[in-house]
């Protein structure tokens, strides 16, 4: 099987990449972290093609599209993402532009481009990594939440038209994961043991993708969060404010 994973060098993307490589699949690993990509290339001894790309940069995305022009992927995981947490009005505009470029524009351009360029193998699967914030809101990261909601709805919108061309779409809503990324953006007293290990999350995502599932809510309390988020959305975001926004003592972007 051939897989393309963005944000593959660290965290959840890395866990998915490792698991696919261990199972003997070929992975095209996209990231902007040169050192981590090097480590990945050395470790995999050739079964992993590393692609250095800055997904905030449209030219870099176009270069990536040219690099994979003749490949037919069985699995694409649009995973790369960043965040910005703190008081909305205090975070620089440039940080928001970068956040929207990486979390939203890049996956949409890649999804549409890979379909247009006929990069998807028959019966392949495209996976969008949204966030559990889609269910509960995320005061203290309102623009991050915006990009993840947008991604969720894009996945929902393209599900039928992509299916007609033989490509399944999975939207994933992961709860908190124990990665460096997550820790950087969280309140300082947030407990690490309440977060799922990236390896466990990766396993669930790859399983959902292989089964062609439409949606996956995964992580500790994700099921309950989804349920109550739909039942009482305002109450949930109020609670999110208490557990996150009120505890953030600095802006991180």
């Amino acid at each position: 099987m051939k897989a393309l994973i963005t944000g593959a060098a660290n965290g959840l993307g890395r866990a998915m990449t490792d698991q696919l490589l261990d199972a003997g699949h070929e992975v095209w690993a996209v990231d902007r972290d040169t050192d981590a990509l090097d480590a990945l290339a050395i470790k995999s001894r050739g079964s992993c093609r590393v692609i250095l790309a800055d997904l905030a940069n449209p030219n870099s995305i176009q270069r990536l599209m040219r690099d994979v022009k003749d490949v037919k992927f069985d699995l694409v995981v649009l995973n790369a993402g960043i965040s910005a947490t703190g008081r909305f009005e205090e975070i620089p505009g440039a940080a928001y532009q970068k956040l929207i470029a990486i979390n939203l524009t890049a996956p949409l351009v890649l999804a549409s481009g890979l379909m247009h360029q006929d990069n998807m193998a028959p019966k392949s699967q495209m996976v969008f990594i949204s966030s559990l914030s889609h269910a509960v809101g995320y005061p203290g990261a309102s623009v991050y939440a915006a990009t993840k909601d947008a991604l969720a709805i894009y996945a929902k919108s393209v599900r039928k038209p992509f299916k007609k061309r033989g490509v399944g779409v999975t939207a994933v809503f992961p709860g908190p994961i124990r990665t460096e990324h997550a820790e950087r953006y969280s309140p300082k007293d947030a407990k690490a043991n309440k977060r799922m290990l990236p390896e466990d999350m990766a396993k669930l995502i790859l399983k959902a993708a292989s089964k062609g599932k439409k949606e996956l809510y995964a992580g500790k309390g994700a099921g309950a969060a989804k349920f109550f988020g739909k039942l009482a959305p305002n109450m949930m975001s109020k609670m999110m404010r208490k557990v996150i926004f009120d505890k953030l003592d600095s802006n991180t972007y």
Binding site: S133, S142, A150, A152, Y154, S237, M240
Partner: peptide, 15 residues
């Protein structure tokens, strides 16, 4: 997607 983005933005910013 952009409108869903605004919707999510509003939900969190309101809080």
């Amino acid at each position: 997607a952009t409108k869903a983005g605004l919707d999510g933005f509003v939900r969190s910013l309101r809080e």
